[in-house]
């Protein structure tokens, strides 16, 4: 990124090749929509280019990148005013999975329940779980992105995991 900052814009291509998939997966897990996720990945790289002067190299690159990604995600949902819409696909998906449950093996069913449970977590907790479990960020890095303390992130992560466990239990009993 330092080279991009110095004007070697081709190096952004290298960063795109390396990070477009993790970014896409982050957005997809947050919004469950491929097109929106693609748009948001594009938006992140546009912002990287636009704000390249603000990159100091003091923290890790992924921290800076996911801070941009998070802002892009927030801005997007503010713009389309969809943040207030409750998750509506949960029940539908769950029903489909239950209807087919006889044919699907237990592991697959559990995976489906877990996916629905993850969607039911509040946005902040879901974001922490995604950044930690799927994007492999350390708690300190997540704390920097969310502008809070490492301890607070650890507590939230633990509570998110407990909530997930309870949600899976509730969903499997429904």
């Amino acid at each position: 990124m330092m080279k991009v900052k110095k004007g070697d814009l081709d190096k952004l291509g290298l960063l795109f090749e390396r990070y477009n998939r993790p970014l896409f997966s982050f957005f997809y897990r947050m919004c469950k929509d491929c097109d929106t996720s693609e748009d948001l990945v594009q938006s992140v790289f546009e912002r990287m280019l636009k704000y390249r002067e603000s990159y100091t190299g003091s923290g890790t690159f992924t921290t800076w990148m996911f801070s941009i990604a998070r802002n892009a995600h927030i801005d997007h949902y503010r713009k389309v005013q969809r943040s207030a819409i409750p998750v509506e696909i949960d029940e539908e998906r769950l029903e489909v999975q239950e209807d087919d449950s006889a044919g699907i093996d237990h592991k697959e069913q559990k995976k489906g329940l877990l996916e629905v449970a993850l969607e039911r977590l509040d946005e902040e907790k879901r974001e922490i779980v995604i950044l930690s479990r799927y994007e492999g960020l350390k708690y300190k890095e997540i704390a920097d992105i969310l502008n809070t303390t490492e301890g607070a992130i650890k507590v939230k992560m633990f509570r998110a995991m407990k909530e997930l466990k309870d949600l899976v239990t509730t969903l499997s009993e429904e």
């Binding site: 477009n20 997809y28 995976k111 779980v129 799927y134």
Partner: peptide, 12 residues
Amino acid sequence: YEELGAIPAPKP
């Protein structure tokens, strides 16, 4: 936590 890792995400 281990099972969470099995939830896939599509490729862009």
